[in-house]
Simulated assay, not measured.
Amino acid sequence: MGTGEETWIARLTPAPGTSVADLLAMPLGLDVWERHTDSLVVAAADGDLDELERRRLARVERVTTTAQYLAQERDRPPAGDEV
Rank of each mutant, 00 (worst) to 15 (best):
R11G: 00
V20Q: 04
P77K: 08
D50R: 12
G29D: 03
P77G: 04
S39W: 15
A15T: 08
P16M: 07
R76Q: 09
P16K: 09
M1I: 06
R35N: 01
V60G: 04
A79N: 02
D75M: 08
L57V: 00
I9A: 05
A45W: 03
E51I: 06
M26L: 15
E82G: 03
R54K: 14
D50C: 01
W33M: 10
L52Q: 12
E5P: 00
D22G: 01
R35K: 14
R56P: 00
R35Q: 15
V41P: 00
Q68E: 15
L28M: 08
T13L: 12
L52A: 10
L24M: 13
A15Q: 08
L23K: 09
A45I: 01
D75G: 04
S19N: 11
P78C: 03
S39Y: 15
G29V: 02
R74E: 13
A10M: 11
D31R: 12
T3I: 10
P14H: 05
A67T: 14
A15L: 03
E73D: 08
R56C: 07
G47F: 13
A21K: 14
W33E: 13
R62T: 02
A58W: 05
T7V: 12
D22V: 12
V83I: 05
L12E: 10
R56T: 11
T65L: 07
V83E: 06
T18W: 13
V41E: 13
W8R: 08
L23R: 07
L24T: 00
E51G: 02
P16E: 13
R56N: 13
V41N: 02
P78N: 02
M26I: 01
L23G: 01
A43Q: 15
G17W: 11
D50T: 10
P16H: 03
T65W: 05
Y69R: 11
L28V: 02
V20R: 04
A44N: 05
P27I: 01
R76N: 04
L40W: 09
D48F: 03
P16Q: 07
R11V: 13
S19Y: 07
G4Y: 08
T65S: 12
G29I: 03
S39L: 07
R11C: 05
Q68T: 12
E82C: 03
L70T: 06
D50P: 00
R76I: 02
L52V: 06
A43T: 09
M26G: 00
E6A: 11
D48S: 15
Q72F: 12
A43V: 14
A58N: 03
V60R: 05
R54A: 14
R35W: 00
R55S: 13
M1C: 09
W8Y: 14
R74V: 02
